[in-house]
Design a binder for these strands. Structure first.
Lengths: 189, 189
DNA sequence: TGTACATCAGTGAACGCGCGTTCACTGATGTAC
DNA sequence: TGTACATCAGTGAACGCGCGTTCACTGATGTAC
């Protein structure tokens, strides 16, 4: 069969989107290529006409997810008050839907154990978000907040979300999210 | 061969210690039983005379690691100033030696995706540490700090350590640790 | 207008490998008689 | 004192399975002549 122009890009795109979701939901190691390709309605063999290796897909999925988030973030931080920003990150919805959520919270620990190339992709495409956070925090505090401080702020958000996700008691998990909101507000202002 | 009394316990113990280290270093999924048993100087078959399954070992290793940390912590927090406590957690040494480090930072994201039994073991054996942190923070702030707030504080520490671990540029990673120290001090006092 | 060939995303079977788990067996030492 | 049997941590080979990766092939459509 012959394919419409852009068919290749569209398929490649679909594979990236699907894997990005699955990686965040189940972890990178737990997601096999067969599962990704089946969700894309294709067989495994096709994978290698689009990507050099699983590692290459991992990097692609990471940068896509991080870039997409950054695009949304710049807009979301525009004039938003601290509490609503922090509360939407540390929400039960975000906790319960890791697949559509923050890649840092879902994958940072696993990425830390990946090859340098993966870590570099992660760091490079997380940097714009950290910069945007730094600018936002600077505005809130009325004085210059550096990238490292913004990263620590992101660490608080991601770490607290992870703890909430690992806590089996729902009321306790909700309370951790609330405490995270309080802590983040204290830190941001 | 016949074995000395306590030999069974000693072997079981060794398997738990070794796996606890490897799990924190490489992640639970990435560590096979063959690797654990080889490090213990045994063959894989022996594993099942000591544990029902890999999942059972995971729970055992988690509770052991968390209990051991809690024992050390109560002593470490006794009269220690904020900065030295926080700085020893967010140290380059801790970042670079995950195998001997905090199980929360190393494994919380992976545990969140494990069966409920594992999450319950994790939560139950992490609770004493959170309580000890809450008591310590209460002393520092001069007013009652709840368990959820202490958990958020632990979230800041673990999340920041994870980000530092994933950051390939060493200077940048060091700066994140320093920023984490500042944030934790602000939050604790 | 008709024929031959090129293109290329996708197929599907196979590859070696490591995984968790099972199981018949070993063999040094203990106990029973 | 000597013999028969019980104990039990450890052995090592095998199991089915899913993994990432490879590769000869397909087949609908495009282009060349």
């Amino acid at each position: 069969m012959r394919y419409a122009p852009g068919h290749n890009e569209a398929t490649r795109n679909r594979i990236v989107e699907i894997s990005s979701r699955l990686f965040r939901e189940e972890g990178i190691a737990a997601v096999g290529l067969a599962k990704v390709m089946a969700k894309a309605g294709l067989t495994v063999g096709t994978f290698y006409t689009h990507f050099k290796s699983k590692d290459a897909l991992v990097r692609e999925a990471l940068l896509r997810t991080l870039d997409t988030r950054h695009e949304g973030l710049a807009h979301a931080l525009e004039g938003a008050d601290v509490e609503s920003v922090v509360r939407s990150y540390l929400s039960p919805e975000h906790r319960d839907d890791a697949g559509r959520g923050c890649a840092v919270a879902a994958l940072v620990a696993e990425v830390a154990r990946h090859p340098r190339a993966t870590r570099q992709t992660f760091a490079a495409h997380n940097a714009p978000t950290v910069e945007a956070l730094a600018a936002w925090l600077s505005r809130l505090r009325g004085k210059k907040v550096g990238a490292a401080d913004a990263a620590a702020f992101l660490g608080l958000l991601a770490g607290t979300l992870q703890l909430a996700r690992a806590t089996p008691d729902r009321a306790e998990s909700d309370a951790i999210l609330e405490a995270g909101v309080r802590a983040a507000i204290r830190l941001a202002t």
